[in-house]
Design a protein around this nucleic acid. Structure first.
Lengths: 225, 225
DNA sequence: TAGTTTCGGAACTTTACAGTTCCGTAATTA
DNA sequence: TAATTACGGAACTGTAAAGTTCCGAAACTA
């Protein structure tokens, strides 16, 4: 969405008082197609190693860029990684063209495309290697938001339609179900380091999520011991 | 369990051929109570920062130990961290004294004790900061195994008893249910960095796990598209 | 007591990396 | 054409941390 933020050279110049806002610059223009190459290289190396394993020299070499070029655009490694994470999470599922097979189970499974699996697994590898970087609370959101939200949103739409047509109980906790799907899938890739397989996903749906959605009898009160 | 492994000095001495295995050594004995202090300090700092934020100097200072002492016992930072992780995961729930209230929901909730919550959250902080270290597949197991296994095992016992007394369906996928509990809880602390709260756990049980266990009608075949 | 190994602590060496500067070249404007 | 800015690339600086070595003191054995 917003794209970038800590860019542009230091640009700390106030030409006196009568600043007439004339940014008509002289000299060779900055090639902004290099931005993408550098961000892509950064994500690539983050996915292969980790935040600490990603050195600025590696990124520069991978992107065939000079370090001066990088530091002309980002003032630090932290800034570069922050923008690279935003860049990584730029793609979103198209909520306008969701599957509609008439079966919630089929819809949920149809959402899983091999291409998107590989993409999400790459994001998980990046996330796994972020380590100490995520300790900055400001980056915890930047790094996380957008990785799973898109998938969870799509799943929620599918569930709401299923509820509307009476396939699942209307008082089921759909948000919880979506969160369980994304968090368990993330845990599997992030911590267990297993690939996302459709058989695993089908087991999760058949063994837990769909039964709960179809029969969510809340027979237990909220007892706080 | 096994405890330690990469210890002892290099000890590469073969006294000629007639090695009569006489380990009767001379000199001051190694104080193995220092091991625990050092491992504890390492885990402490791992929990506060990360693998890369944990420096050998910090550990030495925290444990009031000399670095020479540390390198006499562990040949590298990697070795120290490996043993520290094993040390961290040494405690296990007592499977012999599980709660037995007659209600699975109550039993599962009774297993959550404030003391064990704090302990597990500390482990999660350590795990979150491991980052690049976990990329070594050999450490992925060391680091992970034992953090959640104990809790999952206890939950499985409780579920099996509930199944035996007919509280839940006997053909329910208990292992899957236990795995979902641990993986979602871990995700919450590890990625979302939220504290473990009983209300969250009760919602997970009431909204998804228990309904699924009580009504696991497998109405959908395994279709591989 | 003499010799050996440990201890905590500090100084030291080495390596790796973030960030800076400079080079020759290419692009842009006046 | 001349001045300016960007480019890739390489050299350079400063710092942080892993690992080593040495110190004086303590603990153990013969």
């Amino acid at each position: 969405m917003s794209e970038m933020s800590g860019n542009e050279p230091v640009k700390a110049q106030e030409s006196g008082d009568s600043a007439e806002k004339k940014p008509q610059k002289v000299g060779r223009k900055r090639d902004h197609t290099r931005d993408e190459k550098i961000l892509e290289a950064a994500i690539d190396i983050l996915a292969e190693s980790s935040f600490d394993g990603m050195t600025m020299d590696k990124v520069a070499t991978r992107a065939k860029a000079g370090k001066a070029t990088m530091y002309r655009r980002w003032s630090s490694k932290e800034q570069l990684v922050r923008d690279a994470l935003a860049w990584m999470n730029r793609s979103h599922l198209d909520l306008e063209h969701l599957p509609d097979s008439g079966s919630l189970r089929e819809d949920l499974l149809l959402l899983i495309r091999p291409q998107s699996i590989a993409e999400e697994e790459r994001k998980l590898r990046v996330l796994a290697g972020l380590g100490s970087f995520l300790q900055h609370p400001e980056f915890a959101d930047t790094g996380m938001a957008g990785i799973f939200d898109s998938w969870a949103d799509a799943n929620l739409q599918l569930m709401k339609r299923a509820a509307a047509r009476g396939e699942i109980a209307e008082h089921a906790n759909l948000e919880l179900a979506c969160w369980v799907i994304t968090s368990t899938s993330a845990f599997r890739g992030l911590v267990e380091r297993k690939p996302f397989e459709k058989t695993f996903y089908a087991d999760l749906l058949d063994g837990l999520v769909l039964p709960a959605l179809k029969n969510p009898k809340a027979d237990s009160p909220i007892a706080e011991s």
